[in-house]
Design a binder for these strands. Structure first.
Lengths: 320, 320
DNA sequence: TTTCTAGTTTAGAAAATCTAAATCAAGAGA
DNA sequence: TCTCTTGATTTAGATTTTCTAAACTAGAAA
């Protein structure tokens, strides 16, 4: 193995070559001139050839010394670049969350704004995307997703479990005053296309079966690829949506959506939060993770306390 | 200015990342495991982020640690490359001489072979070229040239002063038995085209003037671009050449060329030897320089002792 | 000439690095 | 389960390196 010369001597040599004088190098390195002088001699001894030409009171690189210096300096440039990278990591701390698009817009977005207000020093980026990103790069710190995808991550935990319930706008309900769950199935139904393995557990047919009804022939059915779009359509009086309590919770509590029957269907899987362990070192990284899990617990509790009725939804008193 | 982390710590970190274990790194660096362990901790402290993941008895790089390591390792690779370059300089020592082509073939070549025989460990390269090379690279160690070109070099000294004298083959002389210097000018003259500023001091017209003759109308004149080619042509009985004593000395002493009159013309300039100061550090570099200057002195002495006559040339006894 | 500047050299102080031994943690084998 | 082995960490103190301060040298400038 090639054994390297004393590194401190190389450093003195690099500084000297870059700055052109022993005095300047000493200042740059924060040591005395004598120290640099000694290290330069050591560098020459280690190299075995004359690197410097001393003519009385000033010192210059020899031709070969210059060449050697070029190579050594390239090495130190690498070090400085590495150092710059590290320092950037330590100072500019953007926290990046990746989240399923509908959940991002209908649930996480507004809540995350609250957190950022309480932590003004934090810079948060929220990305809505279906594909699971890699948490190994420095691109994404957190991923909030659903189902079995958790296997793709090293560090994750369950966030909350969601439910669906049929909901429509108050206006639509007054025009279609459904008397029984069966009547819902005869209205305009807004359907959501779940992608891939998110399971087809929460479509209208499954819901119907779960409440003891049979729905073989669909009435006019409009399909949305985004839950959020389907919910918005329902708010606009376009029909019944099988709304997730997470995404539609705010709309239901505020009366923009009403739920004639409290017939909920639990989703087969849960939402989970995965994270890059490195984020815990970032400023506010650990705090954000804690807050997100608090948000998940809060969501589960909210669902448990939610009373749904044709006249409006209310929250029962819960544990503080 | 970006201040670098402790270099020794970086070195330990680099070795660890490259070899995958603290023990291996310690062996590679030739220190104890404990020392490496301490340096690794120092590297982490300096970086400010977790570089290593310790799970009981084994340690691995974190994702960020790997990235940091890649950059640091690139720096050390530079160092190793620089070290390899230095070591190559110190071990493989080829001595390279650049010389005017004719002087190389007719004078230096055979003499240099003698020196190499006496110094079998030396590897010598002789390059014949007209253009002055740079001695700043590591390509050429010595340059042997003529005239004012010495100004292009930092380190040089006069080598010897040359003279020209008319010479032809014994055969040619018997066919053209010249009685006086004037008769020479009526024979076939072999001329040499000196390039650029080497001076036109040594052409036939100059020689004629120097011996009190006038040569306005040239007889049939053949011009060579290489002195060596002109001399060879004279040896082959093609005419008179204005031969330099350095290049034709051997031929004159051996009788391949004869000189009817000892009417010499001193060249306006001298030959000089320039060198790269770095060569003095190479094995045998200083010796070769000393020998070359000895050769120059020897040449001047030889010229002083040389007796030229129609019947043949002899060397007067000189200082030993 | 003296003075100033830039670098070198030295001895001893300060800091860093290292070693050796004790300790810890986890997996292997009885 | 307990013990053994392996690989890493931690400590105290020894060793080595590096540094400083001050004396010194050499060339340039006043």
């Amino acid at each position: 193995m090639i054994s390297l010369p004393p590194l401190r001597a190389l450093q003195a040599f690099e500084a000297f070559g870059r700055l052109g004088s022993v005095t300047a190098a000493a200042n740059a390195l924060g040591v005395s001139v004598g120290a640099v002088s000694q290290q330069l001699r050591k560098a020459e001894d280690a190299a075995g050839i004359a690197l410097l030409e001393r003519s009385g009171r000033n010192v210059v690189l020899t031709t070969r010394g210059r060449k050697y210096h070029d190579r050594i300096a390239a090495g130190f440039d690498q070090f400085r670049s590495a150092q710059g990278w590290i320092e950037r990591l330590n100072t500019e701390s953007v926290l990046t969350l990746s989240c399923l698009p509908s959940l991002a817009s209908k649930w996480l977005g507004s809540r995350l704004l609250d957190w950022q207000e309480q932590n003004p020093s934090a810079v948060v980026r929220l990305i809505g995307e279906d594909a699971e990103p890699s948490l190994d790069g420095d691109q994404v710190d957190f991923r909030l997703s659903y189902g079995r995808k958790e296997t793709e991550f090293d560090h994750w935990a369950k966030l909350f479990t969601d439910w669906v319930v049929p909901a429509c706008s108050a206006d639509f309900l007054s025009r279609h005053p459904v008397k029984s769950p069966q009547d819902i199935l005869d209205c305009q139904l807004l359907s959501i296309e779940w992608s891939g393995d998110q399971g087809k557990a929460s479509d209208w047919a499954t819901w119907a079966r779960s409440v003891g009804l049979d729905r073989t022939q669909p009435s006019g059915l409009v399909a949305f690829s985004l839950s959020s779009a389907a919910i918005d359509a329902a708010i606009n009086g376009r029909g019944f949506v099988l709304a997730q309590l997470s995404m539609a919770g705010d709309d239901i509590l505020s009366g923009r959506l009403v739920t004639p029957f409290d017939l909920r269907l639990r989703l087969a899987e849960s939402y989970f939060l995965a994270w890059d362990p490195a984020v815990l070192e970032k400023p506010l990284g650990a705090e954000l993770r804690k807050w997100l899990f608090g948000l998940g617990r809060h969501q589960d509790q909210m669902v448990a306390r939610l009373k749904l009725a044709r006249t409006g939804a209310t929250l029962a008193a819960g544990r503080p």
